[in-house]
């Protein structure tokens, strides 16, 4: 299965979905004009990836978003729900939610998500802000 790579833009994040390494990463800011349309290829990829996943496989998910608008928040929850389902089915899913120490909003957003998810491992990982 091919990897899916989407480059970052001002209002949409960098996306790297690597089937071989079973590593998924999303980083940057997300407030695209149409979140459903922007993320459609991501969902198509993820559904295929999870359908082909061997039982008990480990999947690492690295989320380092700095801002999600409200539509992107819903999309992110749907994305995490699919991974949650895979974890319920036996996959070992580890999500690292990376947030800058001075970005309380995105920490709160990670906490909101973590409360919705039980089967996967959801880590809130603080990182000091990168130099400008």
């Amino acid at each position: 299965m091919d990897s899916l790579v989407i480059e970052e833009s001002r209002s949409s994040p960098a996306i790297r979905l690597d089937a071989g390494a079973r590593g998924l990463s999303i980083s940057g800011e997300s407030y695209p004009e149409n979140a459903a349309a922007f993320y459609a290829p991501v969902f198509a990829w993820l559904k295929t990836f999870l359908a082909e996943l061997e039982p008990a496989a480990m999947v690492r998910v690295d989320l380092a978003v700095r801002y999600l608008n409200s539509s992107s928040t819903k999309v992110m929850l749907n994305f995490l729900d699919l991974l949650e389902q895979a974890a319920q089915d036996g996959a070992q899913v580890i999500v690292n939610w990376r947030y800058d120490s001075d970005n309380e909003s995105i920490l709160e957003c990670g906490q909101d998500f973590s409360e919705e998810l039980t089967a996967l491992t959801f880590n809130l990982v603080e990182q000091s802000q990168e130099p400008p």
Binding site: E33, A35, N69, S70, S71, K74, V75, L77, N78, D112
Partner: peptide
């Protein structure tokens, strides 16, 4: 507000945009 936000977060996304979440999120902030 947080409870309402969580509830609304689970509602499907309107394809024309508009998550129904924006005002609740603003009220939380």
């Amino acid at each position: 507000l947080k409870a309402l936000y969580k509830e609304q977060m689970r509602q499907p996304l309107n394809p024309q945009g508009g998550a129904g979440l924006g005002l609740i999120g603003m009220a939380r902030k």
